[in-house]
Computed example of a mutant assay.
Amino acid sequence: MHLHTLTIQALGPFPGRHTIDFARLGSSGLFLLEGPTGAGKSTIIDAVVFALYGKVASREATEERLRSAHARPGDETVVDLVLEVGSGVYRVRRTPAYQRPKQRGTGTTLQQSTVKLWRLTDPDRPDDGELVSTRLDEVGLELQRVVGLDRTQFVQTVVLPQGEFAGFLRANPEDRRGLLQKVFGTEVYDRLQQRLERLRAEAGRALEDASERVARAVDHFVGAAGVPADDADALRGLATRLDAAA
């Protein structure tokens, strides 16, 4: 998965609108997310995870923390992510649920969470895309399908927030094995190994059946031809050696 751009507004410590060009930052193959405590590093990670899964990275936190306390009342909290996976380029735009001022009267009302998912032909033209869905459940399933990981798997292997990787290391070996297969795409080798094991077992059974048929054929020949006992034993021994050599 490759991130192209991330646009956030009224999110965490960022009251305004900001766009991160990941494609440009990662052109050399590596970039560093660095800054002092409170600079907004976790907010950027939360924004990516929220865009993909509708939840923040940490299991102990809720999406309520996404709304910037410094945002103007009328500014919408938005996360807009353009990403590329094996099946194509996608743009997802999400807004979390938060309290906003009422349009009439005083007080606040709940602004419901929203989502839109587009499939793009060009990551540099995010406004020219095919709308896939605006339903939370459909978008969630589609993004999980194209990314290939659910939220728990994503944060344990791609994001690695504090404490999550330790949980991954403490998981039972079979769970870790299955997850790493998904991340690194090694399922094909596992399937190949299983196939080779089945072929070896089938070949072993076929060889055993053939050996039994040869032994029966030798016994039938010895009996029908009236071969003396010593010669019969020699024939059986020759058949056994030929079988072993095969």
Rank of each mutant, 00 (worst) to 15 (best):
E187I: 04
Q181G: 08
R236Q: 11
L11Q: 09
H70A: 08
R195V: 07
L66N: 12
Y53G: 06
E63R: 02
G237T: 12
G16N: 03
L32D: 05
W118I: 01
L131M: 14
A166L: 12
R72S: 14
K41L: 01
R170D: 15
L136P: 00
L30C: 01
R72G: 11
T77K: 12
T7Y: 01
R94H: 04
H4M: 00
A23V: 02
A206M: 12
I44H: 04
T240F: 11
Y53H: 11
R59K: 15
D80T: 00
R94I: 13
R236V: 08
R176C: 07
V147F: 09
S42V: 12
R241H: 10
T5W: 00
R170M: 12
G204W: 09
L66M: 14
L160Q: 09
V48M: 05
K55V: 13
P126E: 04
R65D: 05
T114V: 10
A224S: 15
Q156M: 11
L141S: 11
T121C: 04
L199H: 11
T7L: 03
L120G: 05
A71F: 08
T19L: 01
V158S: 00
D230E: 14
G26M: 03
R72K: 14
R59G: 15
F154S: 07
T37L: 13
R216G: 11
T43F: 04
G237L: 10
R91F: 02
T19N: 01
G167A: 09
E142T: 14
E174W: 09
A215Y: 13
L66C: 11
G35H: 10
L207F: 08
D21W: 02
A224W: 03
A244Y: 09
G88A: 07
F165R: 12
A61L: 15
D21S: 01
E208D: 15
E84L: 01
F14D: 05
R195E: 13
R65T: 15
E197D: 14
G86N: 05
P13I: 08
S42K: 13
T114G: 15
L238R: 10
D190P: 00
R24H: 02
F31A: 13
V214I: 15
D190I: 11
L180C: 05
A47F: 08
P101D: 12
V49S: 06
P126G: 02
A246P: 00
